[in-house]
């Protein structure tokens, strides 16, 4: 989780990641953020994020992102 938070804070220092559970739906993360984040997550966790996983619900909160990462690591 610490690695993920570090990635997120570096990407968007202006966003409160701990409290916001609608990061995409509230507009805090835009498509540039998602694209950057996908690249960072693949590199940091050695996973592949498929097209079917690039959906708002997987990026709406730190917990949702972490859950996706864990699932993809197990696949």
């Amino acid at each position: 989780m610490d690695t993920l938070l570090k990635i997120l804070v570096e990407l968007r220092p202006d966003v409160d990641f701990e409290d916001n559970k609608e990061l995409v739906d509230s507009g805090e993360l835009d498509s540039f953020d998602i694209v950057s984040l996908v690249g960072e997550l693949c590199e940091a966790y050695e996973i592949e994020i498929g097209a079917e996983d690039i959906v708002p619900e997987n990026f709406n909160s730190v917990e949702a992102i972490m859950a996706m990462v864990v699932r993809l690591q197990e696949d």
Partner: peptide, 10 residues
């Protein structure tokens, strides 16, 4: 995007 291609298309 899922293949991690470089882009400026957002």
């Amino acid at each position: 995007l899922s293949k991690g291609e470089k882009t400026n298309f957002f």
